[in-house]
Design a protein around this nucleic acid. Structure first.
Lengths: 140, 140
DNA sequence: TCTCAGTTAATAATCATTATAAGGTTGATG
DNA sequence: CATCAACCTTATAATGATTATTAACTGAGA
């Protein structure tokens, strides 16, 4: 269908390192998480390369940019349809692979042409649940 | 139940102007939207005051901070439970007041204590639907 | 009137992200 | 093999949103 992607990017060592870090990574890392992790094994890595690579991968639909954390973008190598479970204390994000049937009536659509939906679940992760204190972040 | 709120803030003219702008505002404005609008009628308004007031209102659960727009926080004076319909081109956000029954099995909860959920619908708003070009923002 | 807590607003500082520009790499072509 | 162009990396500057700092301001009591 779409073909504004799959432009086959050059697989430079930097990009391989980023891809390798992203692969099977369920932590939904931020750009700076990626930079920190990758520059350990690849000390010449530049922040710009992380952002450049992420932009390219995004255009190819190889990563998805998440607007879940109010403070920074998070990146998800899992581009299939799925939902998220988010800890309102530590911002940990877990994938949910169930299907939910949520739909809008014509009236609710307000004239929009609906292209997709996404369910966020909020809660306290096992670690935060047992560590007293109140939740510092907002929920839904 | 909770009582970490309702600390009754002093209603200064600046805060009144912000509250008045927010009241019944369905646009989910950003801090700079609020600043622009309010400083028209209140030219001495400072950006710091906008952020200070928003922080106070947030602590009192009088506004909700939305992590929907990847580029900036949006603020929602509607603090009741509801969902959102988001234009993937222009980022317009519309409220959806339906109820959806989405639930997780114990296994899917990963040990989380679930406190809420939120459904985002993505699509093209009537304006953007009819203005050619491809969508510049990501969906779910 | 004096004081104190809470507030405003100018300003600086920080953080995430994007843009710019200079040099590096690679691979096809002559 | 030399060259050139397209694409990359990197350092760095620039931008934009947000937070922190601080001095001056206000208003309700003592």
């Amino acid at each position: 269908m779409d073909d504004h992607k799959r432009t086959t990017m050059k697989l430079t060592p930097q990009r391989l390192a980023i891809l390798e870090y992203l692969e099977n990574n369920g932590d939904h890392p931020s750009a700076s998480d990626i930079y920190s992790a990758v520059s350990e094994r690849f000390p010449t890595m530049s922040f710009a390369t992380v952002y450049n690579t992420l932009r390219t991968l995004k255009m190819q639909d190889a990563v998805r940019e998440l607007a879940i954390d109010p403070d920074k973008k998070r990146f998800d190598p899992n581009t299939g349809p799925h939902h998220h479970l988010i800890c309102i204390r530590c911002r940990r994000i877990v994938d949910i692979h169930s299907e939910f049937s949520v739909g809008l009536t014509e009236g609710e659509k307000c004239g929009f042409e609906i292209t997709g939906n996404h369910v966020d679940f909020y809660g306290l992760c096992p670690v935060c649940k047992n560590s007293g204190e109140k939740a510092p972040h907002e929920g839904p």
